[in-house]
């Protein structure tokens, strides 16, 4: 997982990550944009690697990274780890979060989590045709206003809306805007603890990563991940605390 491969080059293409739940047509969008013949599937966990492809738009080149389909960035499955780590450490110029119009609520769970990590996001509401068949319509403008990032509607299999999506992606990379996108409002108890933790966390990693999000991960007791983050941004702090678990060790532990 060479997530740092593309950072640090001067003339690198814009790196765009493609995130979304399984079965939202992510791979169809990926194929439509890159022309790469990656087989798309209709069941969870199809993309087990970060597939990469390039495309250009308005004389700019882009590198599109198709992240594994995940429901969340909180749990610790291989796919979620790959997706989260890329958004977090890969520092893509932009992340497209693909949502299925017919199950927007479940899909927004992921979108809100991505928006907690980075404001460089464009929302793509895909499968509008399927939703229409089920009498479901999405107010895209309203969604965009509420999330604080652009929201584009598409029907990837017919190509509908993909131009607008590219336009929005290019524009957003050009000018990420200054508005903070929608942040999840937690219940009072959580908010109080987070407010207390933020200054402590900030000392550890500075402003490299959203301290609010990091504080939440602390409450989430995701230690391995916190250590990974701190190691990434402030290595001298956690010498000897690393707890990477390899597949084999993991396996031995389980059997």
């Amino acid at each position: 997982m060479d997530i740092k491969l593309f950072t640090g080059h001067k003339n690198r293409p814009h790196v765009v990550a493609l995130a979304g739940n399984p079965n939202v047509g992510k791979s169809t969008i990926f194929n439509a944009l890159t022309g790469l013949r990656q087989h798309t599937g209709n069941w969870p966990g199809k993309t087990v690697n970060n597939a990469r492809g390039t495309f250009s738009y308005k004389n700019k080149s882009f590198l599109l990274v198709d992240l594994p389909g995940t429901y969340s960035l909180l749990a610790r499955s291989v796919e979620e780890e790959i997706a989260r780590d890329f958004i977090c450490f890969g520092q893509p110029d932009l992340t497209i979060v693909v949502l299925a119009a017919s199950s927007l609520e479940r899909n927004l769970n992921l979108a809100l989590q991505v928006l907690e990590i980075t404001p460089r996001v464009v929302i793509c509401v895909n499968l509008l045709d399927e939703a229409k068949k089920n009498n479901i319509y999405v107010d895209l403008e309203g969604l965009s206003k509420r999330l604080g990032v652009p929201a584009i509607g598409t029907v990837a299999r017919t190509g509908q809306g993909l131009d607008e999506l590219l336009e929005a992606v290019a524009a957003r990379i050009e000018d990420p805007g200054t508005n903070q996108p929608r942040q999840v409002v937690y219940s009072q108890e959580v908010e109080e603890i987070v407010a207390f933790l933020i200054p402590q966390v900030q000392r550890l990693v500075g402003t490299a990563i959203n301290p609010r999000w990091l504080a939440l991960r602390l409450l989430d007791s995701d230690r391995a991940f916190i250590e990974k983050i701190v190691q990434h941004f402030n290595p001298q702090l956690c010498i000897g605390t690393s707890s990477e678990i390899s597949f084999d060790q993991h396996l031995e532990a389980v059997i």
Binding site: L104, G142, V184, V185, S187
Partner: peptide, 19 residues
């Protein structure tokens, strides 16, 4: 609580924009 809260936010937004 964190997961429940995120979903509460998601449900609220979905309620407002899904017709």
């Amino acid at each position: 609580q964190i997961v429940a809260d995120i979903y509460a936010n998601a449900a609220q937004i979905a309620n407002e924009v899904v017709v």
